[in-house]
Design a binder for these strands. Structure first.
Lengths: 182, 182
DNA sequence: GTCTATAAGATGATAGAC
DNA sequence: GTCTATCATCTTATAGAC
């Protein structure tokens, strides 16, 4: 069965947010890309705020699932962090997109309160996961939370900068160096 | 003498870009804040693209001056990097703003080509300055450019994330740790 | 669930008076 | 250099037919 319209809307909107940001896409953009009318989008998501919240809820669930999968698939700290890095690199490679929450963080001042909450929750999720991964290492067990924050911030910033150069390798080099210096 | 209107426009616009981004501010916002009409803004900067280019040109010049000043005022690598860090922390502290180029980097896909060029030039400027600072260190002279990229990316990302928590201390802790681990 | 039609307001931008 | 007036277009959002 084909993806329900609701999911198609979320898919298209997510890509729009990741490439242009919250203020720079419209219902008309979504409608045009899917091939339906603006009113139909409003039927599924009456307001832009509701659309953004639904987007973030799904994104957090998906991302959380990916993190659990990494924990399952990889046993060592190094392998887990390498897989985490790939999560970001793949998004950047696919049409020069940013992490959706990195983009929403830039749009933060214009975001409805409920969406702001979701953005912080995403960062909390990532920090918690990274902290648990880093805290499990044989050596360098010290201050896993502080080191987790460095990884998250550096990855978000590296995506931002590397995208302006259309250079995924630049992202990976920065990310590798950050992980090596932890 | 009071600041010329042109400069007042650039001042106000810069703050708007740093807090909301390129797509989320309008000529009406600038006009309202200065207390003149939209048409007057268009007299000084006919199009939004021209306004953005003027903004970036001035920003790059100012930022470049600040970097030269740091080099002049501080002799050691550590003191220079600490002063560089303060440049970013001060912007974040003042009304939760981001580095203007961090914001423009998020808005990159919607930017006129001339502005895109300026954004990359800003990153080039910073990378070059950081590379020269890091290359001058007694120890750890190796790969100054790669380490410069880590600093720039981490600082941009740390601003982005820390802003969502309204937490300047969080930015500073991440920045300090990045500098310590170089 | 999708459509047409429409609303009310914002947007970037221009013409021309003062 | 600033103003009023105006423009065409886009924006989010709603009402109601099919």
């Amino acid at each position: 069965m084909p993806a329900a319209t609701r999911d198609r809307i979320l898919d298209v909107t997510q890509r729009l947010v990741q490439s242009r940001g919250f203020s720079a896409f419209s219902y008309a953009d979504i409608a045009a890309e899917i091939g339906i009318r603006k009113a139909s989008i409003h039927h599924h998501f009456p307001t832009k705020a509701e659309l953004a919240v639904a987007l973030m809820t799904r994104y957090r669930a998906t991302f959380g699932g990916a993190l659990m999968q990494i924990t399952r698939d990889h046993a060592s700290v190094g392998a887990r962090l390498a897989a985490y890095k790939q999560l970001f690199a793949n998004v950047l490679r696919d049409d020069h997109r940013l992490c959706m929450c990195g983009m929403f963080a830039a749009d933060y001042e214009t975001l409805p309160p409920e969406v702001r909450h979701e953005v912080r929750a995403f960062f909390d999720d990532n920090e918690a996961w990274l902290t648990s991964v880093l805290g499990a290492g044989k050596k360098g067990r010290a201050q896993p939370r502080a080191r987790a924050r460095v990884v998250l911030a550096a990855f978000e910033g590296a995506m931002l900068v590397a995208r302006t150069y259309r250079d995924v390798a630049m992202f990976e080099e920065i990310a590798d160096r950050v992980l090596a210096n932890l």
